[in-house]
Simulated scan of single mutants.
Amino acid sequence: MEYRGASAYNDDKFFENYINRRNREESPNNIIEKPILLELIGDIEGKKVLDLGCGDAKFGVELLRNGCISYDGVEGSENMVREATKNLNKTEGKVHLSSMEAWKFQTENYDLVVSRLALHYLAELKDIFQEVHNSLADNGKFIFSVQHPVLTSSIKSAAASSSKADWIVDDYFNSGKRVEPWIDKKVVKYHRTFEEYYQLLKLVGFKIEDIREGTPRVEKFSSESEYKRRMRIPLFLIFSCEK
């Protein structure tokens, strides 16, 4: 069975395994990706935020604590929405059960749209990018991360080992569907080249301000061997764009 979009997280066992994996001490999401996102976001005081594919909304809780005045999380998994609702309890944040494709974007409503490692689950991005652009106020920002294209290009490495020491990059310029073994399930992702992401953003009118590939920072690691392993290949591709 192949899981698409957020559907994998509605499998209770997969969801439990994911949460445990995501919250482990040296999760790359926490020690590589998130610090870069927060740096690119900068001062969030007084801003309205939309989070596409918000997961458990812990990131939203952090943004609210840092001063954003409203937070809307969009999430397609019922299990994730329940978790996000608990985390956002007693805050100004809200979570909405919806796929990104079905979400009704409000025009010129947000100062920041953020998405963490969710957009590579979508078969088509142009319309979503256009909706995000329309939903931002003037000078609003769109900051998002995806799995790096050198990883999505081929599933051969993922199929060989869950703790890889070497990586295979293949079929790089053949964009499209990939079925990746992940946490004992088959999960559908969509590979795009670095160039394709960049050109789609330009096409809908974004100005690309910054691009990062998640260079590991040694001070974030307690294990020297894990730091050296993470220095070998990029896990993330992160864009900061302005309307």
Rank of each mutant, 00 (worst) to 15 (best):
G5S: 03
A165D: 11
R230Q: 13
H120P: 05
N30L: 12
K164W: 07
I208T: 05
M1F: 05
I155F: 02
K156D: 09
I31W: 00
I36C: 02
V146L: 10
Q147H: 14
R24F: 04
L38G: 02
G176W: 06
I44R: 00
V61R: 14
H148N: 08
E25K: 12
A57N: 02
N79F: 04
I31A: 01
E242A: 07
D56N: 15
Y110P: 04
V187R: 10
I36L: 10
D111C: 05
L64K: 03
D12A: 15
S240I: 01
D51M: 04
E101P: 05
F144W: 06
V49L: 11
F239E: 03
R178Y: 08
T152E: 05
F173H: 06
A159F: 00
D166E: 12
C241V: 01
N17C: 06
V179N: 11
E2S: 14
E92T: 10
Y71G: 11
E108P: 03
G93M: 01
N174M: 13
G42A: 04
R65L: 14
L203S: 12
S154E: 04
I183V: 02
G93E: 01
H96E: 09
R24A: 03
N174C: 05
S175D: 12
E209D: 15
G42K: 03
S223V: 05
R24T: 08
S161L: 05
E78V: 11
V49H: 03
Y121F: 13
P234V: 02
V81T: 09
L122Q: 14
V150C: 14
E39T: 15
R178N: 08
E224T: 12
K207G: 07
E78P: 00
I233K: 04
R232S: 13
D170N: 14
L151G: 00
E92I: 11
A137H: 11
T91A: 08
K164A: 14
V204N: 05
K228M: 10
E26H: 10
I233Y: 09
L125W: 09
E196A: 07
E33D: 13
Y3D: 02
K34E: 14
K156P: 00
R82W: 00
E131N: 15
D56F: 03
S145F: 04
K156A: 10
G76T: 04
W182A: 00
A57D: 02
K177N: 05
I143A: 05
D43G: 12
E26W: 01
W182E: 07
V61T: 06
D111P: 00
V132A: 10
L119V: 04
P28G: 06
T91Q: 08
C241M: 02
L52P: 00
N10G: 11
L50P: 01
V218I: 15
G76H: 02
V179G: 08
E195Q: 12
S161F: 11
S175G: 12
I238R: 08
A8Y: 02
I143W: 07
K186S: 14
Y110V: 02
N89T: 14
V95D: 01
E83V: 10
A137K: 12
D11Q: 07
W167F: 12
G53E: 03
S70Y: 08
M1A: 12
A8C: 10
W103L: 13
A137D: 10
H133G: 00
